[in-house]
C-alpha cells in the first residue's frame, strides 16, 4: 500500500469518527422525533438487511443502477469521443450539452414517465440521463486536450485512425475521462434513486419514500446511512483508481 493510499484511508477513518460524533451530538439535540442514534441505527440495520423485503428492494435498485450506469457510460463515452475528435461537431453540440447539464432533470421526469411508463425502464432512463452529460463533457474535453505532439507522433509512426484512438488518444485522455466517470457514477445513483422515489413500486428509493410517508424514522435513517456508506466507499475506491491513473500522467 502506497503512503498516499494509507494517508487517505487514515483520513477517511478520522472523517468517519467525526461524522459519527456529530451524528450523536445531533441526536442528543433533536431526539427520537427525527433521528436515531448511530448505535441504534447500526443495530436496526443489522436486523433489517437480513429480511427478504430488503433483499428484494436492494436487488431492484441494483439492477436499475447497473443498467443506468452502463447506458450512461456507453453513451457518454461515445458522444464524448465523437465530439472530441470532430472539432466542428463539438463547436455545435457542446453548448447544447452544457445547457442540458444545467437543466434540473426532475422537470423531465413526467415526460420520461409518459415515454417509458411506470417501472424499471423509467428509473433506468432517469438515472442514465443524469450520468450521460457529465461523462460526455469530461470525455469530450479529455479527447480534445490530448497533446497535439502525441497525435503528430502517431502519424509519423504510421498508425491508423483506429489504432491511434486505441493506443494513444484513449490512454492519454483516461485520467480526465475517469474523473467524468466518477461524477457520472454519483449522479446516476442519485437519478436512479430519485426515479424510484417519485414513481416506482420497488427499490430503495421507493422504500425511503414509503418510510417518509409513514414517518418510519428507523427506516429513513437506516437507508440514509446505507446509501451514504455505499456512495462514500464507492467514491473512495474510484478516487484511488483515479489517483493511480493520474499518477502516471
Amino acid at each position: 500500500m502506497s503512503p498516499s493510499t494509507r494517508r487517505l484511508i487514515v483520513n477517511m477513518g478520522w472523517l468517519t469518527l467525526v461524522i459519527l460524533a456529530l451524528w450523536q451530538g445531533l441526536y442528543a439535540l433533536i431526539g427520537d422525533i427525527a433521528l436515531r442514534s448511530p448505535l441504534a441505527t447500526l443495530q436496526f440495520t443489522a436486523k433489517f438487511v437480513t429480511t427478504p423485503q430488503f433483499a428484494t428492494h436492494l436487488a431492484e435498485t441494483s439492477k436499475a443502477f447497473v443498467l443506468a450506469l452502463s447506458i450512461a457510460m456507453a453513451s457518454g463515452l461515445a458522444i464524448g469521443f465523437v465530439l472530441g475528435l470532430k472539432r466542428f461537431a463539438s463547436d455545435i453540440f457542446e453548448p447544447f450539452l452544457i445547457a442540458i447539464y444545467s437543466v434540473p432533470k426532475i422537470t423531465l421526469y413526467p415526460i420520461l414517465l409518459l415515454v417509458f411508463g411506470l417501472g424499471l425502464s423509467a428509473k433506468v432512463a432517469f438515472g442514465a440521463i443524469h450520468g450521460i452529460v457529465p461523462i460526455a463533457l469530461f470525455t469530450l474535453n479529455a479527447v480534445r486536450n490530448v497533446k497535439p505532439v502525441l497525435l503528430k507522433t502517431a502519424r509519423v509512426m504510421g498508425l491508423s485512425s483506429t489504432t491511434t484512438i486505441r493506443t494513444v488518444i484513449f490512454p492519454s485522455a483516461l485520467p480526465e475521462i475517469f474523473a467524468g466517470l466518477r461524477i457520472g457514477f454519483s449522479l446516476t445513483l442519485i437519478g436512479t434513486l430519485l426515479g424510484e422515489m417519485f414513481a416506482s413500486q420497488r427499490g430503495l428509493g421507493f422504500l425511503l419514500m414509503n418510510a417518509i410517508g409513514l414517518h418510519n424514522v428507523d427506516v429513513i435513517v437506516m437507508l440514509t446511512f446505507l446509501l451514504t456508506g455505499f456512495a462514500g466507499i464507492a467514491g473512495i475506491v474510484l478516487l484511488l483508481i483515479n489517483r493511480r491513473i493520474t499518477a502516471q500522467a
Binding site: L150, K152, V168, S172, A249
Partner: peptide, 9 residues
C-alpha cells in the same frame, strides 16, 4: 519533437 512526446501511461 521539441515538446515532450513520451507516452505517460
Amino acid at each position: 519533437f521539441q515538446e515532450d512526446a513520451s507516452f505517460a501511461w
